[in-house]
Each structure stands twice: as C-alpha cells, then as structure tokens.
Write a protein that binds this DNA or RNA. Structure first.
Length: 259
DNA sequence: ATGGTCGCAAGGCGA
C-alpha cells in the first residue's frame, strides 16, 4: 500500500500537475492539503475517472484537505475534535482496506505565524488536540498513519538555513517540542527513520529562488504507529515534481507498507 | 534594509 501526502496549494492551480504526478507515481492513497476549495468545487470526477475514490473536507479559499484512494475506504470522518468553535478544514480520517486495514489521518497543521500571537496559540492548541486524538487511536492497536503538512521543521538538519527560521513558528522550540511529544507517544517519523542524512526537503518557497538555491525545509511528514512502522517497506520524496510545470511549493512524499 | 512569489478570487489575506 503506497500512501502519499501532497500539499498542492490550490486544486485549481494544480489541475494538470496533480493528475500528471498521479499517473507517474501510482499511489494507492493520497492525502491532499490546501485544496483551497469547497467540496462542491473540487473536480472529483477527474480523479474518479482515474480510479480514485474521493473524500473531501473543503473550505472556501483557504485550507481544505482530501483523501484520494484506489482502495476501499471505511469510516471516513472529518474535523479534529477538541474545539467546537474551530471552522478550519484541516483534518480527515479514513480506514483504507488493503491486505490489512490501515487508519489514515490526513492533516494540515496550522502555520502559526506570526509568533507570538493568536495564530501561534492556535497552532500549539491544535497540536495538543491532535495529540489527544493520537492517544485515542493508539488504543485501537490498528496500524495508524498520520500524514500531511505539519508546518514543523523537526531539527536543524531539516532546513538548508536553520538560522533564518529561529523566530519562525515552524521552528520555534515550542513547535519542535510539541512535535517531539507526538513522537514520544511511540510514533515513528518514517522518512527520518530511513534517511539519517541532512539536506532532504519537501518545501521550497516560491520567493527568492529558493528552489534554484536548494533553500528548502522538511515539513511534510508521515508519523507511524508501531503497528504501521512494522509494515514500513520504503519512503521517498518526489523532489523532481518541484522542477515541473506550474509546481506547488511542496512536493509529494510517500511511504509503502506491507499492507 | 527591503522585497522578493504564488493562490484564491476579485481586494487583501495567507503562506
């Protein structure tokens, strides 16, 4: 089972690049972030014609997540518990039925800038809400995959220029601490577990020639429960997508599981 | 030191 995550930065803008990557990469499951569309505006037929089931959790103009799957889905849920006043579409879950059943959670963690401030407070509170949901799901002892745009640079080795991020919500000590608190529940950062070397990124800003200078950061992650980590076969960043026509500022990253 | 680039959607916010 090949499970990818891809922050597409707008489905309308990626209406050609996303299908092209799907055709080349052939993922079974894709968690999308920043679809920037309401559910009714998402071009589901395009992906259904490619053999994907389509589950969206959209919002006008901003945020929005989705799951595309060639495999059957069960128990699809939308939204992250813990704050009834939260109207931002950043979380979707489904159980994917492969040779094993895997619970897949697609997430778009708040950016949090500027920090300090209310947006940073929202980010940290959201991470605590996520932590509570992870604890709930761990009790099921199902294989769990939490993938998406975490908007967290875990370590200095995950940025080309860590010094410029020191006061940024993606790299502040509290952000990295909250990310480590997720790991300490027993989750595995799939990419880092298999790739000890620095200099491997999933995001390059559109500005200032970041891609050409390889001034990137690693902020898109798959965190795996122990039951999922035992099934891990491979993990890759599809870096070349960033050099394609009309690219997102993020690239896809995927895992394959024996499931 | 500043602004620099995109997307959505139609002005300015978010990243």
């Amino acid at each position: 089972m090949k499970i990818a995550t891809f922050n597409i930065n707008g489905i309308k803008a990626r209406i050609e690049a996303l299908p092209a990557w799907l055709t080349a990469a052939q993922p079974d499951v894709v968690c999308l972030q920043e679809i920037k569309s309401v559910d009714e505006g998402f071009p589901r037929g395009l992906f259904e014609d490619m053999g994907y089931r389509v589950e969206t959790h959209g919002q006008k103009s901003f945020n929005g997540v989705a799951i595309l799957s060639k495999l059957p889905l069960e128990d699809v849920t939308r939204g992250l518990a813990g704050d009834d006043s939260d109207e931002q579409a950043r979380w979707i879950e489904a159980t994917v039925i492969g040779t094993r059943a895997v619970r897949v959670c697609g997430l778009y963690l708040p950016n949090g800038n500027p920090a300090p401030g209310p947006k940073y407070d929202y980010k940290l509170a959201w991470m605590e809400r996520m932590r509570a949901r992870v604890i709930e799901l761990l009790a099921t002892e199902e294989p769990l995959v939490f993938c998406g745009d975490y908007n967290v640079i875990p370590q200095a080795m995950d940025a080309a220029k860590p010094e410029v991020w020191l006061n940024d919500a993606l790299y502040l000590p509290q952000s990295r601490e909250a990310f480590r608190r997720l790991l300490h529940l027993g989750l595995t950062d799939a990419f880092r577990a298999r790739n000890p070397s620095p200099g491997q990124y999933t995001f390059w800003d559109y500005q200032a020639g970041a891609w050409e200078r390889n001034n990137g950061i690693r902020i898109d992650h798959h965190l795996l429960s122990a039951q999922a980590a035992d099934l891990l076969r491979d993990v890759q960043i599809d870096k070349q997508v960033r050099a394609g026509d009309k690219p997102s500022d993020h690239v896809p990253i995927w895992i394959s599981l024996d499931a």
